[in-house]
Simulated scan of single mutants.
Amino acid sequence: MSTIESDLRYASTHEWARLETDGTVTVGITDHAQEALGDVVFIELPALDSTLSAGQPVGVVESVKAASDIHAPISGTVIAVNEGLTEAPEGVNTHPYQSWFYRLQPSNVEELQQLLDAEGYQAVC
């Protein structure tokens, strides 16, 4: 069974979002998503400084089974990407909540409240 961390917010498209103390938001894919994908072999991340809209496809995760779009859970500007995932994408399979994809400066932090909490995400899964 997938792990769902209680301190994160979740999109129904299986991305997680964590509000950091500096007001930025870190984004990755959930344990459920990586289990469904299987062995991750490639990750395409959004470009630095790109402006994202909530729900917009912003990258791709490819596995031995399938390819899946990564969506922006909230709107904002990309301020960092996890370059380590381009060299070692399999980290998502072993540590999905530490293997973040990108960080953004949210345009409206209140959008986080529109995402699912852990209980709501569990119901989606």
Rank of each mutant, 00 (worst) to 15 (best):
M1V: 10
T3S: 11
S6T: 13
D7L: 06
Y10R: 08
A11S: 15
S12K: 15
S12F: 01
T13C: 05
T13G: 01
T13H: 13
H14L: 11
H14Y: 10
H14A: 12
H14P: 08
E15D: 09
E15W: 11
E15I: 08
E15F: 11
W16G: 04
W16P: 02
A17R: 06
A17H: 07
L19M: 12
L19E: 14
L19K: 14
E20I: 00
E20V: 00
E20L: 15
D22T: 07
G23Y: 09
T24K: 10
T24C: 10
V25A: 07
T26N: 02
T26K: 10
T26D: 02
V27D: 06
V27M: 09
I29F: 04
T30N: 06
T30C: 07
D31V: 06
H32L: 12
H32M: 07
E35I: 01
G38T: 08
G38D: 08
G38H: 07
F42I: 04
I43Q: 03
I43R: 01
E44L: 02
E44T: 05
L45S: 02
P46G: 06
P46E: 11
P46Q: 10
A47W: 00
A47P: 00
L48D: 11
D49L: 09
D49M: 05
D49N: 15
T51S: 13
L52G: 00
L52V: 09
L52A: 01
S53R: 11
A54H: 04
G55W: 08
G55Q: 10
Q56L: 03
Q56V: 01
Q56G: 05
Q56C: 03
P57T: 11
P57D: 12
G59I: 11
G59H: 06
V60Y: 10
V60L: 15
V61E: 04
E62S: 13
S63Q: 06
V64Y: 04
V64A: 12
V64E: 02
V64W: 02
V64H: 02
A66P: 02
A67C: 08
A67N: 09
A67G: 12
S68T: 14
S68I: 04
D69S: 14
I70A: 03
P73F: 06
S75I: 05
G76D: 11
T77R: 15
I79E: 13
I79F: 06
I79Y: 07
A80M: 07
A80W: 00
V81E: 10
N82S: 12
E83Y: 01
G84Y: 02
G84T: 13
L85W: 06
L85A: 07
T86L: 14
E87P: 00
A88R: 14
A88T: 15
A88K: 15
P89A: 10
E90A: 14
E90N: 11
G91H: 12
V92Q: 06
H95L: 12
H95M: 12
P96V: 04
Y97V: 03
Q98P: 00
S99Q: 12
S99M: 08
W100V: 03
W100E: 03
F101N: 01
Y102V: 05
Y102R: 00
Q105A: 14
E110L: 13
E111K: 05
E111I: 07
L112P: 04
Q113S: 15
Q114V: 01
Q114P: 00
Q114W: 00
L115N: 05
L116C: 04
L116A: 09
A118S: 10
A118K: 01
E119Y: 00
E119D: 12
